[in-house]
Simulated assay, not measured.
Amino acid sequence: MTGQSLERLRTQRLGQLEELVLRQDLRAVLIHAQGGALGAATRSNAYLRLFADWDGFEASTSLLVERGRRTLILSNPFQLHAAQGIAGIDAVVFSAPSKLGEAVQGLLATSSGDALRIGQAGWPEAQWQTIESMHRALPRAQWEDIAPELDRWRIAKAAPEVEALSAAAALCDEVFSRFPAFLRHDREAWKTQRDVEHFALVSGAEYCKTWLTIGPAAQRPQYLPHENRRKPVPGDQVLLGVMLKLDGYWGHAIRMGAYVEALPVHLRLHGLVHEMFDEALALFGAGADLAGAEKAVQGILSRGLPHVPPGDIFRFRSGHGLGLSYEEPQSVAAFPQYADPFDTGRSAPLEASTGAMFELHPNFFAKGLGGAALGDMVHVTESGSVRLLRTPLDFQLWG
Results as ranks from 00 to 15, higher is better:
R10S: 09
D236T: 07
R23Q: 15
M243I: 12
W398Y: 15
K157F: 08
A59L: 03
Q237R: 02
E161K: 01
V378A: 11
Q219P: 04
L165R: 02
S331L: 10
R49E: 13
L244V: 09
G251Q: 00
E125M: 15
A218T: 03
H226V: 05
T2E: 10
L369I: 13
G304L: 08
E144R: 10
A167Y: 07
L26K: 00
A137H: 00
I146R: 00
V29D: 02
L64W: 01
P309M: 11
K367A: 08
A168R: 00
A356V: 09
L322V: 11
I31N: 01
D340P: 06
V175C: 11
P216N: 07
R230T: 14
F57D: 05
I313P: 05
W211H: 04
G3I: 12
A253F: 02
P148V: 11
I86M: 12
T213V: 12
R117P: 03
P306L: 11
W153L: 15
A33L: 12
D145L: 11
V260S: 15
P216E: 04
A159G: 07
G106K: 01
A288N: 06
A262W: 06
P329V: 08
A218L: 02
E7Y: 05
T11W: 13
W398S: 03
F179S: 02
E7L: 06
R49S: 12
E7I: 10
Q396M: 07
I214H: 01
P234T: 07
P392N: 14
S353P: 01
A262H: 05
H185P: 03
A293N: 06
E66N: 09
S133F: 02
W123I: 09
A46R: 02
L50N: 03
L305D: 13
D145Y: 05
G119Y: 04
R10N: 12
L397E: 10
Q337C: 06
D376V: 02
Y47K: 15
L80C: 06
M256P: 04
G35V: 14
T71F: 05
N363S: 14
L116N: 06
V93H: 00
V380R: 01
A52T: 03
R184Q: 15
H266F: 13
G39H: 12
L80R: 00
T354V: 07
L374F: 09
A156S: 14
W123T: 03
R346W: 13
H226C: 06
Q12N: 15
T61R: 02
V202D: 14
K231N: 09
I313Q: 10
A115M: 09
I313H: 12
E382K: 14
L301K: 09
F51M: 13
F179K: 00
H32M: 15
G321K: 01
L281V: 02
T210L: 10
P160V: 09
H198L: 12
